[in-house]
Computed example of a mutant assay.
Amino acid sequence: MPKLTKRLVDSLTPELKERIIWDDELGGFGLRIYPTGRKVYIVQYRANGRTRRKNLGQHGVLTADEARKDAKLIQADVARGADPSADRKARLRSPTIKELGKRFMTDHVELYCKPTTQYDYRNLLDKVVNPILGSIQVSEITFEDIATFHLKRQSTPYQANRGVMMLSKMLNLAEDWSLRPINSNPTRRIKKYPELQKKRYLNDVEQERLGAVLGQMLQDAEISRYVFAAFYLLLLTGCRLSEIQKLKWDYVTPTHLELPDSKTGRRRIPLPREACQLLQSLERREDNPYVILGDHGESHYNDLQKPWRKARTRAELTDVRLHDLRHTYASVAVTNGIDPFMLKEILGHKNLSTTLRYAHLSDDAVQKAAGQIANRLANRLGSIG
Rank of each mutant, 00 (worst) to 15 (best):
Y112Q: 12
M170E: 03
D250P: 00
Q245K: 15
Y329F: 15
L16S: 13
E258W: 07
N55C: 05
D70L: 15
Y121A: 09
Y45Q: 03
R321G: 01
V40N: 10
I182T: 12
R91A: 12
S139N: 07
R309P: 00
K114S: 09
K198V: 12
K152D: 08
H59D: 01
K17D: 11
T106Y: 07
V366L: 14
L361R: 09
G215D: 15
G211K: 05
H256M: 13
Q280E: 15
Q277V: 05
A147E: 14
L151N: 12
D295T: 15
T355R: 04
R380D: 12
N130K: 03
V61G: 09
A90R: 12
E175M: 10
G81F: 09
W308P: 01
D77H: 11
M170K: 01
Q58N: 10
P35H: 09
L100V: 08
R50M: 10
K3W: 10
P260Q: 08
E206Y: 06
Q245A: 07
P186A: 06
Y34I: 06
R376Y: 11
A160N: 05
Q44L: 09
I74G: 02
V129H: 02
T51Q: 14
K17H: 11
E298T: 15
R153L: 11
I33C: 06
T116K: 15
E222L: 13
L234C: 08
N203S: 09
A230S: 10
L16D: 15
H150S: 06
W308R: 07
P254T: 08
R93V: 00
L234W: 04
T63Q: 02
H108M: 03
L196E: 15
I74C: 03
D324H: 03
E316N: 14
L322Y: 02
N123W: 14
N161T: 09
P289S: 09
E222H: 11
V128R: 08
Q277A: 12
R284Y: 06
I20H: 03
G294C: 09
T51H: 10
P84I: 04
